[in-house]
Design a protein around this nucleic acid. Structure first.
Lengths: 300, 300
DNA sequence: CTCTTAATTCTCATTTCGAGAATAAGAGGA
DNA sequence: TCCTCTTATTCTCGAAATGAGAATTAAGAG
């Protein structure tokens, strides 16, 4: 078979936020991301994928963006003659959907993404899962100073601050340390749930991209219902970033950007003072950023 | 032919900065970016491409990053039976090389990228090429308010500020307006030089990515020689961003980041006070950003 | 010694950021 | 009705980052 020919498939990281939890659509009871062959019927990759997702989920995709193209010669173990077979190319996409109810058919198809990356959730306290993790990573790094610094830097150890943007690098470090394979670690609570092939890496790519994106593009609104309170909005951003934010500063940011407007209605049915409802005000002029550039993190 | 099979090729945007001009490596006297079939010999896309580039240019690639994957059914006009043929997938890469001498064989393979996007160079005065451009775009937008706002926003018209980060969007707008095709406009000085297929779009993608990247990663140093003055560094950033920077503030930024250290030597052979030479101090701890987040633009 | 050209340092007003205090508006019970 | 609890919404204020330009220093040329 001549070089230049490859098998191509699309893999989608579909994200929704329900009940303040960031969720990703999965198949095979959480072991795989939805994927399908690359069909040449559609005009573009995007439009084809969009149609496919809407057919699968029954919901329209608000936002769709290409993530990364992975190529792997040894992806498919069922192919005996790997050296001669065409190579596999997987094109990863990130899609955002409005709040979905996780209750679907039998299996919950929408999984919290922190099930795969438990150490990424810093909304309430520093996750204690980081202790065993740090230990394993430490014994992997041994006396290699560079590696130790990497570990400290990425996982916020020894006085280094935690940075939510490095999710992919953290996963890759764990992979390098042999901690990504469930068979070896045998502790999903600490090391996260594995997935087929490199699906977990693709998910990490999606999370990282989304965490970066919400800082300078108003994409969160693709995940919100039509009307929401500012606290709803904040909780969604917190769910995605895995951080707690400072409420007054978050509000300040939001209305500086002029991305929302009051609907005139008030929220109801909750304890405490009722909150104003807002709606997204689609920024005609392609506003530069949502949350400024950094999130207003709350330290405590 | 079953779906899921595709032709795959790699396309590279190789960038170097020489004599304060950002240059891109081209073939066919500037009409095409270097590209080649996707070969399955190498372990990964990256490593294969890296080897290929070093073979072609004779120079090592300092930095290599995937840009975007394009799929186009009708890319190759020499294929008569397009409806049956496999689809083309092009995987674009951005590579940075150290200062190259543009004088190669016969044709100058390294072209200034502003030849393809003349309106992107705002280092000295607002380019007057923007006038005819704005006019054409205006008559394309007609009375569509949304389009007019887009044009103003992207090209910095009617009091809107210029933002160097939107190079790709600007190109796509021009494409939508039918101004990207040289056959129609027939004025390379104003509308830039066209390229084969979607190579010019891929180049725009590379420029946009690089302009964004230099703001938060120390990638400029991949383009610098071993020793350089701070002004050299500034000029390189200016070349890439297409902006003039404020010298004192640029310096402040640089040494806040602690990315460079003095060599002890001084520059020589130029008029004026000699400048200290610096070298890059490879940031062990994966420093978050080079130029802060925004460049210290100089207004005048 | 003076002039020209840059390099290098300083200053200062303006914005933005991070944190927390203060105030407002409902619900429910005393 | 009044008090308490809870959450919303506003304000303040000091610290840090930014934008702009003045002042100072160091070489070479005449």
């Amino acid at each position: 078979m001549p070089s230049g020919i490859a098998h191509a498939e699309l893999i989608a990281v579909l994200v929704a936020v329900t009940r303040n939890e960031p969720r990703v659509m999965t198949l095979r009871s959480g072991a795989a991301l939805p994927s399908g062959p690359f069909e040449s019927r559609h005009r573009s990759l995007q439009s084809g994928l969009r149609a496919w997702i809407e057919r699968q989920t029954g919901h329209p995709v608000g936002y769709l963006e290409q993530l990364y193209t992975f190529a792997d010669r040894h992806r498919d173990p069922s192919q005996p003659d790997a050296s001669l077979s065409a190579r596999n190319i997987s094109i990863g996409y990130l899609g955002l959907l409005r709040e979905q109810d996780a209750a679907g058919d039998g299996q919950p198809a929408w999984q919290s993404w922190y099930r795969y990356f438990p150490w990424e959730d810093h909304r309430d306290r520093h996750p204690d899962i980081i202790e065993p993790l740090a230990e394993r990573l430490g014994s992997w790094a041994k006396s290699d100073t560079l590696r130790r610094e990497q570990v400290d830097f990425l996982f916020g150890l020894n006085g280094k601050p935690w940075n939510e943007d490095h999710a992919l690098q953290r996963y890759e470090l764990m992979y390098a340390a042999g901690l990504a394979d469930g068979a070896l670690t045998n502790d999903e609570r600490a090391f996260g749930r594995p997935m087929t092939g490199d699906h977990r890496r693709i998910l990490a790519t999606g999370i990282t991209r989304l965490r970066a994106k919400i800082k300078y593009r108003p994409v969160v609104f693709e995940l919100m219902p039509d009307n929401f309170t500012l606290l709803d909005l904040q909780r969604t951003v917190e769910a995605l970033s895995g951080l707690r934010l400072h409420k007054p500063n978050f509000r300040r940011l939001i209305d500086q950007q002029e991305l929302v407007e009051e609907t005139g209605e008030m929220s109801s049915g909750t304890s405490g003072r009722p909150a104003k409802l807002f709606r997204y005000r689609p920024a005609i002029l392609e506003a530069p950023n949502l949350s400024g550039r950094r999130l207003p993190v709350s330290r405590h």
